[in-house]
Design a protein around this nucleic acid. Sequence first.
DNA 1: GACATGAGTGTTAACGCTCACACTGGAACC
DNA 2: GGTTCCAGTGTGAGCGTTAACACTCATGTC
Lengths: 343, 343
Amino acid sequence: MGTDGTETEQRQPVMADVAKLAGVSHQTVSRVLNGAPHVRPDTRERVLAAIRELDYRPNSAARALVTRRSQTLGVVSFDSTLYGPAAMLEGIEQAARSAGYFVSVTSLRSLDGRSVQEAVDRLRDQGVEGVVVIAPQTSAVSAVARISTSVPLVAVGSGDQIQVPMVSVGNRSGAEAATRHLLDLGHRTVHHLAGPANWLESQDREEGWRGTLETAGATVPRVERGDWSARSGYQAGLRIAELRDVTAVFCANDHMALGLLRALHEAGRSVPGDISVVGFDDIPEAAYFSPPLTTVRQDFGELGRRALELLVGELGGAARSRTHVQIAPEMVLRRSVGPVGRR
Amino acid sequence: MGTDGTETEQRQPVMADVAKLAGVSHQTVSRVLNGAPHVRPDTRERVLAAIRELDYRPNSAARALVTRRSQTLGVVSFDSTLYGPAAMLEGIEQAARSAGYFVSVTSLRSLDGRSVQEAVDRLRDQGVEGVVVIAPQTSAVSAVARISTSVPLVAVGSGDQIQVPMVSVGNRSGAEAATRHLLDLGHRTVHHLAGPANWLESQDREEGWRGTLETAGATVPRVERGDWSARSGYQAGLRIAELRDVTAVFCANDHMALGLLRALHEAGRSVPGDISVVGFDDIPEAAYFSPPLTTVRQDFGELGRRALELLVGELGGAARSRTHVQIAPEMVLRRSVGPVGRR
DNA sequence: GACATGAGTGTTAACGCTCACACTGGAACC
DNA sequence: GGTTCCAGTGTGAGCGTTAACACTCATGTC
């Protein structure tokens, strides 16, 4: 059994096969499939039975050709190995699925304007209905801003003055909160281990830090800079450990904070006894650093979901909103921070 | 300029528009686009010029409809927030792109058979030409094994006796190397902090550990078990810290090792002075743990790339190979391991 | 010089679906 | 009892591309 019934051949069944088996026209099959009204219940039942019997699957290419809708959205990601982008991607994918879309991903090596444009073009050639760009670098953002595309596009990451709809975390307010927290504990000033200069997230966090110090009348120390990696945090940490007047460091992300903690430990500076450290992101491991890291939590998954919501809204015909959704970060207090010590 | 030329309307230009502008038939345009032979150089040039002028993009749905090739591969991933899956995904995507494919991702919440089957079906409905399943759990693997699909499928993760082509890391040999290393340093035996019981990777690593102890005639301690997270490693670590006879622990992954290190530190047991610790994966942060973690490196990106290679080979018509590619892991020595101490 | 050859190009027919419209027949209306 | 109406269904024409084949000339062959 299975081979008999209608004379099934090798080829996949098409709508006409279902129609024939059910004794209706292809159009009625289409109606059933798309839930169109005006189909008598028993007809519908017969069609569904035929579909089951033949194990018929609609051909998405044919449908896309005529409806001009691919049911697919594109995502351009950067280093999707990092926790942030990975979590955003997951949020985007889940939201897309529940909105009935597929997600086509392309992950960039470098984030210069050309690469971004190429990636968007590629996705567009594939027929995606919209694109989410995870665009944390200034270069990418400006690239996105002047991207030529007939496809709706939403950016997620950071930055303000940009023509594209955008979802981001409140980097500045998070940095402000972290810095203020340290000042409130009695630290004269707070050093900063920043991310790469060409990332908007770095810039915003740095501005938040600097602004808070200036408002408080504290001196603004020279910024140390890393590349987000634990390795770069370690190297910066070795430099910082040599400075005599450091009592508090605000790191632009948790991974660099990890490296920093390691370097301080090796240099014999205790945390938080000698130096307090605050990170940013609240990656799942942060609670298990030595010592557990006080940090600023951002909800990457939510970020992704909101970005997708925005995109779907735009697809739904809502006028190009130029919205900028911002998600508030939240401080998570752990043991890497203390009041200013002896010295 | 730009608006003039042919009477461009709102709609996207199609092949016929290009043909008209270039003064050829649409078929010749198609030939140029697909690099078919027998097109005179100057004709080709005229067509290309028309394409540029109209900014024409071929419609992928129409092409897919007639060629029956979507140029898209599907990836079913599990928790793509974890470093391993994320890195594999990136490897897969890069390999796919350079092989001329798009990648459609779907990320699962739970990895039971039904979810996997649904995800594969969904991708198939979208028209993917092949599927990579990142399937690290036993349940997923058995689901994959009996998955009904007309689409070529490759699994990446672990496990042996399975009917599906598969790429995995040498979990057993990695675990053996780690355990032997500790025994060679004089440890009487090695404790094990395993991953979830229903993950093949856990099972293989546990077997490698157990086998090595048995071969060496060492006693096999009771296994502690976590869920891969640093949190679970911490909890297991609290239990382990209470045992008096522990001098070495082999952890099934680096994140749990991080939690373990934290717990041991809090319990006042020094690493490696009192207890040596080895992890598995070599995540980028492992070198900056306190102390830096000795671990077994697996190259997730390579894993993904190889999986995709296998899939593309299968698509290329190579007979269903039932190959099982295995990638050798490599030990990375750092400071979390030492000879057996005082006691 | 008739004839095969093949490079270069055009014509036509799918691919499998949805959309617009046409058709049927029974209920409702006066 | 004819007309209107509409639920329920079928027919035909695309959507934009590639595949198959047909055609037209130059060129070479004997």
